[in-house]
């Protein structure tokens, strides 16, 4: 069982979370050409090793999280709120 340390709720089983997918895709501007939209929507780096991905704590605080996880071992290195300015605020007030 993968366990994710939610910044609000603490360490929880991953069955409380919903997997979002790649966290580092940057979507192009709405008026960008079709090629850049094709690449962003359909192509994946499919990393073998550590990657940043999104999870949502749907059975908890419902926050979207950025998780640094190894796809070979499932080891998790860090968890942050996906809204990074909120994350900074949270860390400051901790």
């Amino acid at each position: 069982m993968i366990q994710i340390i939610c910044p609000f709720c603490g360490k929880r089983d991953h069955s409380e979370f919903s997997y979002g997918g790649d966290g580092e895709i940057t979507y192009p501007a709405l008026d960008a050409n079709e090629e850049s939209w094709h690449d962003a929507v359909f192509l994946r780096e499919n990393i073998y090793g550590r990657q940043i991905e999104t999870w949502q704590h749907i059975h908890g605080c419902r926050s979207w999280l950025l998780v640094d996880r190894d796809t070979k071992t499932h080891e998790i290195f860090s968890v942050k709120l996906a809204h990074l300015d909120w994350h900074i605020l949270l860390e400051k007030n901790r």
Binding site: H14, N46, I47, E53, K72, T73, H74
Partner: peptide, 13 residues
């Protein structure tokens, strides 16, 4: 298993 993986190891849920 719903998340990307190369682990050849399944999860309990």
């Amino acid at each position: 298993d719903w998340y990307k993986s190369y682990a050849q190891r399944g999860n309990l849920p």
